[in-house]
Design a protein around this nucleic acid. Structure first.
Length: 435
DNA sequence: TCTGGGGTCCTAGGACCC
DNA sequence: TCTGGGGTCCTAGGACCC
């Protein structure tokens, strides 16, 4: 075992760790190119469904295209651009393959995002008969070959440093930052580029005369403890080469919260329309909650005004639920409390929070079990129909307004309305569920 | 420079209790 | 009735990430 920097603190890990961060290069665009080789070398852009650039190939970057750019701007710059709708199922498959390859080298793999992850290689030189650098390089080569596009890899003693390293050279980069080289890398790095430092913290750091990551790690810990909160104190350790953020290798199976938000144009001051938007968000959030077998004990409603201010209000749900008809009354009450007449709103949001497993749900003594069961059957049927015919095949009458505003006639014929006037405008069988 | 949607974690402050 | 300390729980809001 090598004698590490942290040998002195017996409670901490007694040898340096080797952590690799793998970051896909232009991931979504690369997946498309891997799938359609004829696109290689071309300006490839995803995000067509939203009208803005979501992911872009390096060819697009070179031509001046940027993330978030409106697509008609893109067409002006690059008439030859290939603009595609996002295909998350395909991207997820590539993602799964990438993580599977990483797991060939260590079981300690954290899936941090769809296109990036960490691998803790500590202790693997022996079993794999390779140095850490060789393991990481082999991992990268294998991913590049098997996926058909490149990733960038950073290798360092901590997660925070590995993240910096993988960004150091992109695309197709490999950067190793061994403990003794930390200062060379951090001296040139603006604090705003550190993982965990956003615009506010960056501004605060500048005001303290801290401009580079090296300025930050050079401060004594007592100073950092006095001026910064917990996450930034941990960050200081990480950047100094002491690993304090563990690799979370357990697969994420549950959520702390589920939210659905929707921005609409033009903004509206019509309470009915706003409630209809919220109702749709609630339906969507409930669909997701049911899919994961989760029920909410807390409901949050928020409205965002034109000026980007937002009003938030939440309520406890005495009987946890993932059925819109249970949560709808709470939603209406909350909305009524924060809705201001005359104010124009540009977005609404619903958060289901304090989630618990629906197997743990206890039906109240006062709740007729039969009614509970009835609703469970109704929603099971709704979910099955949605599964077969598309989302919102069955939806609440209350969210109808959002569909008539946003959907094309051809889409609308897919919908069966729920409510008194269900099927009225359509020549399809009507399905009525009274809620 | 800030598009939009989906998340997580932390902190300060108040309520309440001993 | 006032003074003070201490703990816990909850809520609102902030900041950041992809």
């Amino acid at each position: 075992m090598s004698i590490g920097l942290w040998e002195t603190s017996a409670h901490l890990r007694s040898f340096p760790r080797a952590i690799a961060h793998v970051d896909g290069d232009a991931f979504f665009a690369s997946c498309e190119t891997a799938l359609h080789p004829e696109l290689r070398g071309r300006v490839v852009i995803t995000g067509k469904e939203r009208g803005i650039v979501s992911s872009l190939s390096y060819e697009a970057k070179a031509r001046g295209v940027r993330r978030g750019m409106v697509l008609h701007e893109v067409r002006k710059i690059c008439p030859d651009a290939v603009i595609l709708s996002s295909d998350y199922e395909t991207y997820s498959l590539f993602s799964k393959r990438m993580f599977a390859i990483m797991r060939r080298f260590t079981s300690q793999v954290e899936e941090y995002g769809i296109d990036e992850g960490f691998a803790d290689l500590t202790g693997m030189q022996g079993p794999l008969h390779m140095s850490y650098e060789d393991i990481a390089r082999t991992m990268k080569r294998t991913i590049d070959t098997e996926l058909g596009f490149t990733v960038s890899v950073g290798l360092a003693p901590t997660k925070s440093l590995a993240k910096i390293a993988s960004k150091w050279q992109k695309p197709n980069g490999f950067t190793s930052v061994p403990g003794r080289a930390i200062k060379d890398y951090l001296g040139a790095l603006d604090v705003s580029k550190i993982w965990g430092v956003g615009p506010n913290t960056a501004k605060y750091m500048y005001s303290l005369g801290i401009h580079t990551a090296h300025d930050f790690i050079s401060k004594p810990f007592e100073y950092v403890a006095a001026k910064f909160n917990k996450p930034h104190q941990e960050m200081w350790h990480e950047l100094n080469g002491k690993s304090v953020w563990p690799i979370v290798a357990e697969e994420k199976t549950t959520y702390a919260s589920i939210s659905k938000t929707k921005t609409f144009t033009p903004p509206s001051n019509d309470p009915e329309y706003v409630v209809a938007q919220l109702t749709r968000n609630l339906e969507n959030a409930c669909i997701k909650a049911r899919r994961h077998g989760l029920v909410a004990r807390k409901l949050v409603v928020y409205l965002r005004t034109q000026q980007f201010e937002h009003a938030v209000m939440e309520a406890k749900i005495t009987r946890a639920s993932n059925f819109p008809h249970d949560l709808l009354p709470h939603m209406r009450t909350l909305c009524a409390k924060i809705f201001k007449r005359g104010t124009h709103y540009r977005a609404t949001g619903i958060v289901l929070a304090d989630l618990q497993s629906d197997t743990a749900i206890q039906s109240s003594l006062f709740e007729p079990a039969i009614q509970m069961e009835k609703f469970q059957r109704v929603y099971a049927a709704v979910d099955a129909l949605d599964e077969q015919f598309g989302k919102h095949t069955v939806h609440l009458g209350g969210s109808q307004k959002t569909f008539t505003h946003t959907q094309h006639a051809s889409d609308r014929t897919k919908n069966l309305f729920v409510g008194e006037n269900a099927g009225q405008h359509l020549n399809i069988p009507k399905l009525v569920v009274v809620v």
